Amino acid sequence: LVRYRTISKIPQITLNFVDLKGDPFLASPTSDREIIAPKIKERTHNVTEKVTQVLSLGADVLPEYKLQAPRIHRWTILHYSPFKAVWDWLILLLVIYTAVFTPYSAAFLLKETEEGPPATECGYACQPLAVVDLIVDIMFIVDILINFRTTYVNANEEVVSHPGRIAVHYFKGWFLIDMVAAIPFDLLIFGSGSEELIGLLKTARLLRLVRVARKLDRYSEYGAAVLFLLMCTFALIAHWLACIWYAIGNMEQPHMDSRIGWLHNLGDQIGKPYNSSGLGGPSIKDKYVTALYFTFSSLTSVGFGNVSPNTNSEKIFSICVMLIGSLMYASIFGNVSAIIQRLYSGTARYHTQMLRVREFIRFHQIPNPLRQRLEEYFQHAWSYTNGIDMNAVLKGFPECLQADICLHLNRSLLQHCKPFRGATKGCLRALAMKFKTTHAPPGDTLVHAGDLLTALYFISRGSIEILRGDVVVAILGKNDIFGEPLNLYARPGKSNGDVRALTYCDLHKIHR
């Protein structure tokens, strides 16, 4: 019993810090008490220290592992850092350059016999395009090294910054494609005289377009951006097909006994025919423009016929181009109408809503002055909100995010209106959640004399007048207030005048 009563005193000691020596009952000389009392004092002292730490809000209350900052290894790049964003855009520009100039170089340097010394005699450094290609190869190699040090988000939505895990993730992902696209074939085969082989191998750079397509997928929600990307894709495919079309004609031209190829026909049409040795002929500019003209006309199913396939190889390629053109029509131009419709969806919704308003007016036989006010209010409210119901949009977000959005939407009023000066951010967040926005066209009466005042109004834009009878008592403008002081009276009061809008007004109100 003594032991039980001794232990039962522990909660009292913990909360009230009572010393055991003052209790005459606990001072009985028993061996059990002498053993338990020192333990009680020690526990009391420890609990006292913990309570003191909690009340003082000291940093040592938290466990040590929670006080440590997340460790980022040296030379690790955050995937959302500004440097990584700028670097990704730079790589994107280099990939676009590669997609345009690599097929052009591979096709127009394929057994090209233009006048001038061969590239091997001039030297590697004197070729501007080769120098640019070398810079692109170096940048792609540097990009691989950067990807080995860039964080990523795993399946659990955690940012991984450990170098080993980053390397394994990159090896399992895009490393092989990036490595093949970054191989400097110019340096590996330079001086061997195989410019045709170098041009063909350099087309491996186009593998990076797969990554670019995935990154550009984030802009699919913007109709104008999608339309622009589709047109660029169409032009890029036409450019690639033009390079292939020229390569076919250029390879067949020296081996044909009869002059029936499209390059021969082009030379005869523009007065620059090929001679018996295969030299001469149109310039590279004429060849490229004509090839691009043929691919565009074939892809769009126009086909004027002034550039036509004559050999079997050219006919087979033309059939493939027609098939590609039909697929592009289905996948690209078939979506253009939907994209344009999405661009004008706001206008369509406006006309639909206006039609419903006019049908309501016609069905209920609203008189002319009231009908005009109804239409003007709808037009003004639509121009202010673009038909978007803010309350319906915010309803799907958590309250903390709703408060931040409301604070942002009402920031101008909260910053410049005098009653809100000096208020804490928590108070402003709470008030912003209570605001209701209303609009009024010129001549609209917001409050009639004798109406119950259940709200306090803040003028965000425009001006109003307060009338008693036919006498203008006051004219209020931006950041002015009218209405009933909230919670100042037990019952809502009545208006002693009319409140009429002089201009288009936007008002925020808080109800009782």
Rank of each mutant, 00 (worst) to 15 (best):
R74T: 07
R74C: 06
W75D: 01
H79F: 01
Y80A: 08
K84A: 03
V86T: 03
W87T: 01
L93E: 01
I96W: 01
A99K: 01
S105W: 11
A106Y: 11
A106K: 01
T113D: 05
P117G: 08
P118N: 14
E121N: 09
V131Y: 04
V132G: 01
D137M: 01
F140D: 01
D143E: 01
T150G: 01
E157A: 14
E157C: 14
V159N: 01
V160R: 01
P163F: 06
G164Q: 11
Y170L: 01
K172Y: 06
W174K: 05
F175D: 01
L176G: 12
M179N: 01
A182G: 13
F185A: 04
L187D: 12
F190N: 12
S192P: 12
S194D: 09
E195H: 15
L197K: 07
L197E: 01
L197N: 03
I198Q: 03
R205S: 01
L206H: 01
V210R: 14
R211G: 06
A213M: 05
L216Q: 03
A224P: 14
A225H: 04
V226W: 09
L230P: 03
L230H: 14
F234G: 01
W240D: 01
L241R: 01
I244Q: 01
I244G: 04
W245R: 01
I248E: 01
G249I: 01
Q253P: 03
P254N: 15
R259V: 04
K272I: 01
S283K: 01
K285W: 04
T295A: 15
T300I: 01
T300N: 04
P309Y: 01
N312R: 01
S313N: 14
E314D: 01
L323G: 03
L323Y: 03
M328Y: 01
M328G: 05
S337P: 01
I340L: 04
I340M: 07
R342A: 06
R342L: 13
Y344K: 03
Y344H: 12
S345P: 05
R349L: 06
H351P: 03
T352S: 10
Q365E: 03
N368C: 10
R373F: 01
Y384Q: 13
T385Y: 14
N391Y: 15
A392Y: 07
G396Y: 05
Q402T: 03
Q402C: 01
Q402K: 04
C406K: 04
H408Q: 01
G422P: 04
A423L: 08
T424I: 01
T424A: 10
K425F: 04
K425G: 11
G426K: 03
L431Q: 03
T437H: 11
H439F: 12
L446D: 01
L446A: 02
H448M: 04
H448D: 02
